[in-house]
Computed example of a mutant assay.
Amino acid sequence: MTLFDRTKEIIKKRGMSVSEVERKAGLSENYLYTWKKSDNPRKKSIESVAKVLGVTVDYLLGKNETPEWANEKDTKDLETFLERNLEGGMTYGGEDLTEEEKQQVKLAMTTIFWKRHKHD
């Protein structure tokens, strides 16, 4: 899913219009439609839209499986949780985990975090 598609989907879920989000985010008319073709939209505009929609920038960018209800505090809590639980060497049977295995552990811990941390 592209940045534009994800943004438009959230706009629809929020019962808003694209023009309303653009106005509230301080963007020019039809600006969000440029995201259909742009590989590198301005960071400030993405941050503004995320704030208007009440989601994280990472969620808009599709960088993780952050739930749409998560806010900045929630994502900071996740970072803290992962830092506390993943710091130090990760080993199994006396051998260091590969980078791929470490990413799998991180994904599993992230999934558990979001399931336990869910709120309205």
Score class of each variant (00 low, 15 high):
residue 1 M to H: 03
residue 3 L to V: 12
residue 4 F to L: 12
residue 4 F to E: 13
residue 6 R to T: 09
residue 7 T to Y: 02
residue 10 I to G: 00
residue 11 I to N: 04
residue 11 I to F: 07
residue 13 K to W: 03
residue 14 R to E: 14
residue 15 G to E: 12
residue 15 G to A: 05
residue 20 E to D: 07
residue 22 E to C: 09
residue 23 R to S: 08
residue 23 R to K: 15
residue 24 K to E: 14
residue 24 K to V: 03
residue 24 K to F: 03
residue 24 K to L: 15
residue 25 A to I: 03
residue 26 G to E: 12
residue 26 G to P: 06
residue 28 S to F: 10
residue 29 E to K: 15
residue 30 N to R: 15
residue 30 N to H: 12
residue 30 N to M: 06
residue 31 Y to N: 04
residue 32 L to H: 06
residue 33 Y to Q: 06
residue 33 Y to W: 12
residue 33 Y to C: 00
residue 35 W to Q: 04
residue 35 W to G: 01
residue 36 K to Q: 15
residue 37 K to R: 14
residue 37 K to F: 10
residue 38 S to H: 11
residue 39 D to F: 06
residue 40 N to V: 02
residue 42 R to Q: 15
residue 43 K to R: 15
residue 44 K to Q: 15
residue 44 K to H: 10
residue 44 K to Y: 11
residue 46 I to K: 03
residue 47 E to H: 10
residue 49 V to M: 03
residue 50 A to C: 03
residue 50 A to S: 04
residue 51 K to S: 14
residue 51 K to M: 02
residue 52 V to K: 01
residue 54 G to E: 13
residue 54 G to K: 08
residue 55 V to F: 05
residue 56 T to D: 02
residue 59 Y to G: 00
residue 59 Y to S: 01
residue 62 G to C: 05
residue 62 G to E: 11
residue 63 K to N: 14
residue 65 E to P: 01
residue 67 P to S: 10
residue 68 E to P: 00
residue 69 W to M: 03
residue 69 W to E: 02
residue 71 N to W: 00
residue 71 N to K: 03
residue 73 K to I: 03
residue 74 D to H: 06
residue 75 T to S: 09
residue 75 T to H: 01
residue 76 K to Q: 13
residue 77 D to M: 04
residue 78 L to Q: 06
residue 79 E to C: 09
residue 79 E to Q: 14
residue 80 T to A: 13
residue 80 T to K: 15
residue 80 T to S: 13
residue 82 L to I: 07
residue 83 E to D: 10
residue 84 R to W: 08
residue 87 E to W: 08
residue 87 E to L: 05
residue 91 T to S: 07
residue 94 G to Y: 04
residue 94 G to C: 08
residue 96 D to M: 12
residue 99 E to F: 09
residue 100 E to F: 11
residue 102 K to E: 09
residue 105 V to K: 09
residue 105 V to C: 05
residue 105 V to L: 14
residue 108 A to K: 12
residue 108 A to P: 03
residue 109 M to A: 08
residue 110 T to Y: 06
residue 110 T to N: 02
residue 111 T to C: 01
residue 111 T to M: 06
residue 112 I to C: 02
residue 113 F to M: 04
residue 114 W to N: 04
residue 115 K to I: 06
residue 116 R to W: 10
residue 116 R to V: 04
residue 119 H to S: 09
residue 120 D to W: 13
